[in-house]
Design a protein around this nucleic acid. Structure first.
Lengths: 129, 129
DNA sequence: GTCCGACCTCAAGTTACTTGAGGTTCAAGG
DNA sequence: CCTTGAACCTCAAGTAACTTGAGGTCGGAC
C-alpha cells in the first residue's frame, strides 16, 4: 500500500497523470484514506505500468482502455493476442528505424568531427539524410 | 520540383502537417506557382525529413526549430554535435527498452497460446509486467 | 505547535496536430 | 472545349494527452 507519489515514481510518470488516468477511467477510482488521500497496491502499479508501456508505443488512450476492459470482461484471448502481435510487429519496425537513424547520426557526427570541428565551422545537417 | 502532396508522401506525413510546419516557421515559406500552389525541391524534402525524424524521437518543435536555425546561422558545430550525441544515446536507450518489451510480449503471447487459447478463456494482461 | 512537502480539487493552458467549411486549380477523358 | 474529380488554397475550430496554476488540506519531523 503506497501513496500516489510513490506509485507515480515507480511507474515513471507524473502524479497529475495518474489522477488524469483515473478521471478518464483508465485507472479504477483509487481507495482513499480518511483524509481523502489516494492509496494504491500492487495491482494498481501493474495496471499503470501496462498503460505507460502501451502509451510509449503511441497506442491511444481509448485503445488502451478498451484493451484493459477486454481483459476484465474475461473475453476470449484471441483478440488481445492479435493486438499484442500487432504491437510486437510495430516494436520491431521501430527498432529497425531507430537503428537506421542511429547509424545515420553516427556517420553525420564522424563527418562533423573530421571536417568541421577543427575549424569550428558549421556542419550540414542535411547531409545526415 | 514537386507539389505539397508529393512532398508529404515522400516524407511520410500529412499535407496539413507540412502547412502547419510552414506556419510555425519550421519550413521556410514555400515558393508558389501563379495559382498559389506551393512548389518544393530536394532541399525542402531533406529539411522536412529531418524534422520528422527528430519528431519521431519526441524532440519538441521548438528545439527542432532552434537546431535548424543553428545550422543556418553557421554557428559552431560543437553544439549540434552534442545534440546529436544526446539523441543517439536516447535512441539506444529506446532500442533497449523496446527489445525488452518485445521479449515481454513474446513471453506473454506464448503463455497465452499455451494456457488460454485452447479453452478460449481470458488471459492475464498483467502477467506481462 | 509549526512548518514543509505531499496531497486534494477544479479550471485553464499547452503542444502538435487534425478536421471542417467553403472555395480555386489542374489534368485526364468525353 | 468542357467538365469532373482529385488536389490545392485559407482560416477557424476541434482533439488528444497531458501540464500548470490557484487555492486550500494533511502528515510527520523538529
Amino acid at each position: 500500500m503506497f501513496t500516489i507519489g510513490v506509485l507515480a515514481r515507480k511507474a515513471q510518470c507524473s502524479v497529475p497523470t495518474v489522477r488524469y488516468y483515473e478521471a478518464q477511467g483508465l485507472m479504477p477510482p483509487a481507495e482513499r484514506r480518511e483524509s481523502g488521500h489516494r492509496v494504491y497496491g500492487r495491482a494498481d502499479l501493474a495496471r499503470l505500468v501496462m498503460i505507460r508501456r502501451l502509451r510509449d508505443l503511441d497506442v491511444p488512450l481509448e485503445r488502451v482502455k478498451s484493451l484493459l476492459a477486454l481483459e476484465a470482461n474475461g473475453k476470449p484471448c484471441a483478440e488481445t493476442l492479435a493486438f499484442f502481435q500487432e504491437q510486437r510487429d510495430a516494436i520491431r519496425q521501430r527498432i529497425e528505424a531507430l537503428k537506421d537513424l542511429d547509424l545515420t547520426l553516427s556517420l553525420h557526427m564522424a563527418n562533423c568531427q573530421a571536417g568541421c570541428l577543427p575549424a569550428n565551422g558549421p556542419c550540414d545537417l542535411y547531409s545526415a539524410i
